[in-house]
């Protein structure tokens, strides 16, 4: 299957399993939002897919290739951490082109890709800006552009809206959703916020205690939440 397939994955920290025997699939062009409360294992799963944590059991297949034991730098996964992980010593252009630069891409190709990415995230004219001069939303877009510049096989986003202030959140989230619609890669997005999850997801997976408790479209899950806990998670103010 084209996309990401996780088979019977067991993973955690320092030998302690947080996720046990998890199976999950995300097709090409699909956006899956992983939602759960703190400690549910969603970030652990993200870090295992990325290659920061090594699973004790199971397989991770990306476009049918087994990447379970591949070093992080060889997985070709675009990753946007919660704080965007931008390099403070580099400007906007240098941040976006970083992945291309370390991969030895030619200057010409870097330049072309950089222009393409700046247009894609609507940051033309910001090439030479310092990261410290950008707003939260602009930083997030630089992080996204940087993750996408490497033509990733998968995009992972960890709480991408948690550092955006409430006033601009809707605008940033709408922009992000529009960008996702234009992408061909499978996307996994992690959040603990029910509003973000409902707004951004196409497909939703609810994680509880290291297991995917329910998976489906937002409509399906909202219509028939499997447990009262899931109902409370998605509709905290209307759960009676």
């Amino acid at each position: 299957m084209k996309g990401l397939t996780i088979q019977n994955l067991t993973t955690g920290y320092n030998g302690k399993a947080i996720i046990e025997d998890l199976t999950l699939a995300v097709k090409e062009k699909e956006t899956l939002v992983l939602m759960g409360i703190s400690g549910s294992g969603k970030t652990t799963l993200l870090l295992t897919i990325l290659g920061i944590l090594t699973p004790t059991k199971g397989k991770i297949l990306l476009h049918e290739k087994d990447i379970t034991m591949l070093p992080i730098e060889e997985r070709n996964i675009g990753y946007l951490p919660q704080d965007y992980g931008l390099f403070p010593h580099l400007n906007v252009s240098e941040n976006i082109a970083y992945g291309l630069h370390v991969r030895g891409t030619s200057e010409q190709e870097q330049h072309t890709k950089l222009k393409e990415m700046l247009t894609f995230v609507e940051l033309e004219g910001y090439e030479n800006r310092k990261i410290q001069e950008l707003s939260g939303g602009q930083r997030q877009r630089v992080g996204l552009a940087r993750a996408l510049a490497i033509n990733p096989s998968l995009l992972l986003l960890d709480e991408p809206l948690s550092n955006i202030d409430q006033v601009t959140k809707l605008e940033v989230a709408t922009h992000m959703k529009n960008l996702f619609a234009k992408l061909d890669v499978p996307i996994i997005l992690v959040t603990h916020n029910h509003e973000d999850a409902i707004f951004l997801s196409e497909y939703l997976a609810i994680m509880i205690d290291g297991k995917v408790e329910q998976i489906g479209t937002v409509k399906e899950i909202l219509k028939e939440p499997k447990t009262p806990f899931i109902k409370r998670l998605l509709m905290p103010f209307n759960s009676s």
Partner: peptide, 12 residues
């Protein structure tokens, strides 16, 4: 964790 972000972008 910025070092891991750099590695995810392809840096050894």
């Amino acid at each position: 964790g910025i070092n891991l972000t750099a590695r995810s972008l392809g840096a050894n």
